[in-house]
Amino acid sequence: MIRIDNLSFAYGGGEKKVLEEISLHIGEGDFLGIIGPSGAGKSTLAFAVNGVVPHHFNGDFYGRVTVDGLDSLEAGPEALARRVGSVLQDIESQLLASVVEDEILFGLENFSLPRAQIEERISYALAAAGISDLRARAISSLSGGQKQKVAIAAIMALRPKIMLLDEPTGELDPQSSLRVFETLSQLNRLHGVTIVVIEQKIMMLCEFAHRLAVMERGRLILEGPVEEVLLYPEKLEAAGVNIPRVATLAGKLRARGLYQGKTPLNIAQATAMMKEATKDAALG
């Protein structure tokens, strides 16, 4: 679905490469989580996928990005926008309307959706984001978390093949974050939507994402299925990623030869791991 080959990028006027030789393939129906410290280039990588880099921000662009078969350099940002629905990191400035329902209508109007479908799309998106009751509210009167949900709903209404979200739960409480991820997961499972989400909450990614990509200083330092990436706790910690304690524990048990299985991602798996690790100890 998305192929990034040897991508390097420096913002115009800047010497420093913000992205360095990144290669990443994201298959159709994948759920990829991107994690890494501040300034690692996560948002810039997202911009490379939705075409903002290099169409809006020019600079030195090397390599190739293809989205749904379209080369991002050749295809205009509009063609990409039809395929990739993006939620930007800064919530405040990406909301463009006065009232919640108008915000969702904006994209639908722009892409000239048939009139008959518009009402249904609006109610669907509001319900999916859990904000049906906010429909007629002024956006300026909403909390940060509510605004975040509006931005997500505005994208969901467009039903893109790919959804790209830059820290969509940054202002949300744990409960609402969980709901956002559940919604994304549902879109992914039921409708085959490819999800790419930049997220600092590693636990969310461990629970919902299929694959993890770890970025540090413009480079992709680890990439693969979640369990595999968690096999490298030292690398993750060096990149400033707070890995779950249970993954650290799994690493230590493996090092002592007490455990060979996958890194547990939930309580049940962790219990199974502990059973296996203590089996010999109990006998001995």
């Binding site: 903002v52 926008a81 990739v84 930007l88 990406q94 463009l96 904006f106 722009n110 505005a154």
Partner: peptide, 16 residues
């Protein structure tokens, strides 16, 4: 912020 708004509008089909 203004730049960000412009990007957000573009990404939601403002130009089409």
């Amino acid at each position: 912020r203004i730049e960000n708004s412009a990007i957000a509008a573009e990404l939601r089909g403002f130009n089409v």
